[in-house]
Amino acid sequence: MSLPGVCVVLLLRRGPEGVEVLLGRKHTGLGQGKIVGICGWVDPGEGADEAAVREARREVGVQVEASDLHLAGTVEYHFPTRPAWSQQATVFVCRRWRGDPVESDGMTPRWYVLDAVPYGRMWDDASRWLPGVLRGGTVDARFTFGADLATVVLTAE
């Protein structure tokens, strides 16, 4: 079974206290209220990189070039009790863009020093793969969420 595709874009910059990542509090839809990376659905016939460029502009108002996206891997999310939520994310890291991030209808962005990423306010899987990606690694993982739709009950990497 092929899962619907999404993209995740992690903007990284050097801040006064070290490397920072742009995350945002999601206002609507799946994950509302959680802290997430820039993300969105990949439309039919569209590449994940094209979706990433579109979502960076739509979600936080910055212009990203596809050539500046660095593929960090994929993460599959399985929700057996809510199959419509299951998806496969293509994760990109980006260190170059134009413009300053701004709030949108979709999210309120904020820069976080890598040692202060609020994993307790994110999806349960984030603490299992995001630290490695933020430090230059890659990810190829599958997470299955329990009946509460919030807790990872099975991990495969």
Rank of each mutant, 00 (worst) to 15 (best):
D68R: 07
G137M: 00
R57M: 13
S67R: 13
E103P: 10
R121D: 12
W97R: 12
P101A: 00
L12C: 04
F79C: 09
A150K: 09
L12M: 05
S67E: 15
R14W: 05
R135C: 11
D68H: 14
D148W: 08
F143D: 09
V153P: 04
G146T: 03
R121E: 14
R142Q: 11
G73P: 12
R13W: 10
W41R: 14
T90F: 02
I38M: 04
D105M: 02
V152Y: 04
H27R: 13
V8C: 09
T81I: 13
C39K: 06
H70A: 08
H27E: 07
P83E: 08
P131W: 10
T108Q: 10
L22P: 07
A126E: 15
G24Y: 03
E76A: 06
L69H: 02
V9N: 08
C39Q: 11
P44A: 13
Y77R: 13
H70F: 11
L12G: 10
R95L: 08
V53P: 03
E17Q: 05
C39R: 11
D148L: 01
L114M: 11
R13V: 09
M107C: 05
P83G: 11
H27I: 06
D115I: 02
V9R: 11
R135L: 12
Q63D: 13
A141W: 10
W129H: 04
V153A: 11
V64A: 05
V133A: 06
C7M: 10
P83H: 14
V6L: 12
R142C: 06
L154W: 05
